[in-house]
Design a binder for these strands. Sequence first.
DNA 1: AAACGGACCAACCGCTCACAG
DNA 2: ACTGTGAGCGGTTGGTCCGTT
Length: 332
Amino acid sequence: MGRNSCCVKQTKLKKGLWSPEEDEKLYNYITRFGIGCWSSVPKLTGLQRCGKSCRLRWINYLRPDLKRGMFSQQEEDLIITLHEVLGNRWAQIAAQLPGRTDNEIKNFWNSYLKKKLIKQGLDPSTHKPINKTGENCTETSLLQMLEPNGIPYSSISDAMGQIFQEQTEISRENLVNKEVYEYDPLFLSEFQAKVDPNGYHSNFLITSYDQNHMEGNPNQNPGSGSGSEFESLPSLMNFDHGTIMDTDFSDSTSTSRMSSFLMNKAMESSSNSSIMNSHAGFDQTNNLVENPAAYSWDAESKLDSVFQFQYSGIKTEEIMPSPWQEGESRKF
DNA sequence: AAACGGACCAACCGCTCACAG
DNA sequence: ACTGTGAGCGGTTGGTCCGTT
């Protein structure tokens, strides 16, 4: 039995979407004092929010190292591969994708990747081909398989649920026993070894993944300079992703959803660049300096169909858009 | 133009874990 | 060992957008 939500304790606490003013309060506080005790943040900032809500808002939205915009093909492949090994451990998956949040990845998985795997005939839970005997299938995938044949979901759902749950648990247990929790390049190599050469991941290749970057060594991020800047602010290094990297704010649709607070930050400093790199800089006193390029993007810019994705300071080849990037307009 | 439904995603909720007292 | 508290995680929900009818 869990405790009541912290937001329930105090009836006056506000819920729902954050206003630009609230964002600004939280942003100013964290950038000035760093991350400390979240439960005291509402009191210190004057926000009518619970600490939990403040933490979530910072992690998922306000923190400077967030990468916004669509997922690249590489990120997409990495998520699929990590999910195959880690399951729904979104935080651990997010730890391997700097600038992405667990919530973001979880939403991306549920809204797009899961369906993509199903379309490819793969079970999204096991990542194995869906076969007609139901072996290696989850409830969902089997239901999808049977439903077109005229068998109603409801008639088989309950009966199959337990069986599939057991299978999933066994599979998960094996993964947990691997104790793969931290980034390990050899571990990623193992991913490749596990990839079915005939399956979806046949083209997947992790190239030059920078271990120093993953270990939070900011000096291994040539060209950006952002890592070393963050190194000077230990209190802000308590992120899930301990590293800062170039951020692509080029996605116009996602920026349209930014709060006006962040948008204002952008407009203030977007005089000379259409697609900006996001660099949060800090001065000698560990205060965040509003770098002319920080939080800046051109709200009018459209994402090129072919764009460059900078990963760990290593520029990858041009990445072709995902099918859904080509075929449908999507918001990210 | 209005109604409807699906997709998306920010935020919440319930729970576990870690840790201090 | 027990209890209280805060942090963090994963599942779920509800509001909004957008395409279709």
